[in-house]
Computed example of a mutant assay.
Amino acid sequence: MKYLPTFLILSSVAFLINGCSGDSPTEKQKEEAAKDVSAIDLPEKTLESLFEVEKGYTLLTLKDFKEFQGKAVKSVEEPTWTEKGGVISCTGNPKGYLYSIKSYSNFSVRLEYRFPETGQKNDNPNTGFLFYITGENRIWPQCLEVQGKFAEMAHIKSNSKEITLEVTDNQEAREMVRRPVGEWNSIEVISKDGALTSVLNGTPIASCKPSELKAGYFGIQSEGDAVEFRNIRIQKLTD
């Protein structure tokens, strides 16, 4: 496929966001612009120009992950994971996860995700973010999870019976800042010496004290519902 010249793409994005006036773009304008550019197959080198990649962070794309699949609950006629215009899309079938090629210990992960309104209607769609994945790949691996499930967004839990966690969680804050199905929610997770802190749309939601898991691979789940991820970036913190 022939790509549009980079300057034309970026100029179009700027126009979509800013319009004809010099006013600062609203969140709605930014989201509408992101929808329009998500349909364009962009050269990889321009993705960081479309998304906010803060100094010290590295943007992760589909090629930075490996895939593990469980047993499909129905025949699979399309790939579970695809990427277009900087958005990683997941069909939700079969259950499984992407896991990073690199292992991490102390880090900050930032990303946005949403359950598209075109997906199967579900009042409590599900996905999750896996940290410190260790051992064999299975459903589900030994790790800690920051929930992506709508009702428990940004909650922290253990995915292994052998590992218990002491978790502090703020349900009231979650309900105040969580955006509805169909809209993008931003998640940040900070790992420091085995302790995790989750931040939802700029508001701290949960934290856990260190467990025996302190390093491993980072993953995102396929858990039965269509879901989209964008602007996944990671920064290693000083050990």
Rank of each mutant, 00 (worst) to 15 (best):
I101N: 13
P125V: 11
G86C: 02
I139F: 04
E83G: 05
N126C: 08
P79W: 01
N137F: 02
Y97G: 00
I88P: 06
F129Q: 01
K84S: 07
Y99S: 10
T91D: 05
Y99P: 01
N122M: 10
F129T: 04
G135N: 00
N106I: 02
N106P: 08
T80E: 07
S108K: 15
G85M: 06
N126L: 07
T134R: 15
P116E: 12
L144Y: 08
N106Q: 03
G92V: 02
S103T: 13
P79R: 11
G148I: 09
P125A: 06
E136Y: 11
E77W: 06
T91I: 06
Y104L: 05
E145P: 12
E152W: 11
P79V: 01
Q120R: 14
N137R: 14
E78Y: 12
F107H: 15
N137C: 10
E78M: 09
W140Y: 12
Y99V: 02
Y97F: 15
E112T: 04
W81P: 08
C90W: 00
K84R: 15
V109W: 03
E145H: 04
K95T: 12
F115I: 00
F115H: 04
W81V: 02
L144Q: 11
I139Q: 08
N124F: 03
I88Q: 04
R110Q: 12
M153I: 12
Y97Q: 08
S105E: 11
P94Y: 10
G85I: 07
G86D: 03
C90H: 02
I101W: 10
C143T: 01
E136T: 05
I88T: 06
N93M: 06
W140L: 04
N122L: 06
W140S: 06
Q120T: 15
P79M: 04
